[in-house]
């Protein structure tokens, strides 16, 4: 098991290197001047050159790349050009909103998706199944931003029950923070709930038709116990895989959702950093997101391997 984990960790390295190099090249190919954005429209050319020198932007590309890569390997992602603070600090400060948003949307996804999927599987072929699966396809087809706008229109602008946008940190109280997060979490969670419902249903159907479930039934166990105890537990293995996928999708979806609801999270940070050509910040952010993505996949694989030893060989 340990060697499996080590092997998997080592295999992360080339992927991360790929990502790092890719981001660096992409950003260097992108025209744009961070200095012009920082110093404002009236700055003199002399001053712009001086700041570029200060920031090391006039150095040869390869030198910039090696320097950045070396620092990154030591865990130093450099300083944001625009925000004038270490990239890791910028990321750390944005972690809370994004994490809260991601967790709450996962909660939304689980609490809607799982029961719907189970119910649909139990009622396979009946109107409940077909209806809920129809809605699920609709759910994955609806763009998150359109759902978000509809929610804003109804609950924020018209009814004024919840704020249109913004963020209150958890330190200001759970309810205050939740008030701001309800709409974004639903916006982001619904599509994942739909996805989860579809997956849960199909896995439940796989499992319900499996041998041991038939045995359990034959033993005269009550249907409910069969479904919730035997079947669901076994369906959880593939569902862990799905959870990994959903987490990754949420990170990507957070970009758009944070933009609509003006949430100061990692997604919005990234979009703004691209607009300001804040190269170290973009590099650092993408690298960290990619690392999280790869790590989540690793954790998923480890879980699966623990539950199913056959997987350790591959």
């Amino acid at each position: 098991m340990v060697s499996f984990i080590i092997r998997r960790l080592v295999s992360m390295i080339p992927v991360m290197l790929m990502v790092a190099t890719g981001v660096f090249l992409l950003l260097k190919l992108t025209p744009g001047d961070p200095v012009g954005v920082i110093l404002g429209p009236d700055a003199t050319e002399e001053r712009r050159q001086a700041l570029r020198d200060d920031l090391g932007l006039n150095d040869p590309l390869i030198l910039q790349y090696v320097r950045w890569l070396g620092d990154a390997a030591r865990g130093d992602l450099g300083d944001s050009l625009f925000l004038n603070q270490p990239v890791l600090t910028s990321l750390w400060e944005r972690a809370e909103p994004t994490l809260v948003l991601t967790l709450l949307s996962t909660l939304v996804a689980l609490s809607i998706g799982l029961p719907t999927g189970i119910l649909a599987a139990q009622n396979r072929g009946k109107w409940l199944d077909m209806g809920s699966m129809g809605i699920a396809i609709l759910g994955i087809s609806m763009p998150t931003f359109w759902l978000g706008l509809n929610l804003i229109l109804i609950f924020a602008v018209t009814l004024r029950w919840l704020p249109v946008a913004g963020y209150a940190p958890l330190s200001e109280g759970l309810w205050e923070s939740l008030r701001y997060m309800i709409l974004p979490a639903i916006t982001l969670g619904v599509a994942q709930a739909a996805l989860l419902a579809r997956m849960t249903r199909s896995m439940m159907l796989d499992v319900l038709s499996a041998e041991y479930v038939r045995v359990a039934r034959a033993k005269g166990l009550r249907e409910r116990r069969v479904v919730y105890f035997h079947a669901l537990r076994n369906a959880l293995i593939p569902l862990i895989n799905v959870a990994g996928l959903i987490f990754a999708a949420l990170l990507g979806g957070a970009v758009v959702t944070e933009q609509i609801f003006n949430i100061p999270g990692i997604g919005r940070l990234l979009i703004q950093a691209v607009g300001r050509r804040d190269v170290p910040l973009v590099q650092g952010t993408v690298l960290v997101i990619a690392a999280i993505y790869v790590l989540v996949n690793l954790i998923v694989d480890i879980f699966s391997a623990v539950l199913d030893p056959r997987l350790r060989q591959t």
């Binding site: 992108t30 744009g32 001047d33 961070p34 012009g36 954005v37 607009g275």
Partner: peptide
């Protein structure tokens, strides 16, 4: 282009 690029160009 976007603003950051215009400022450079």
């Amino acid at each position: 282009s976007d603003w950051a690029t215009l400022v450079q160009n």
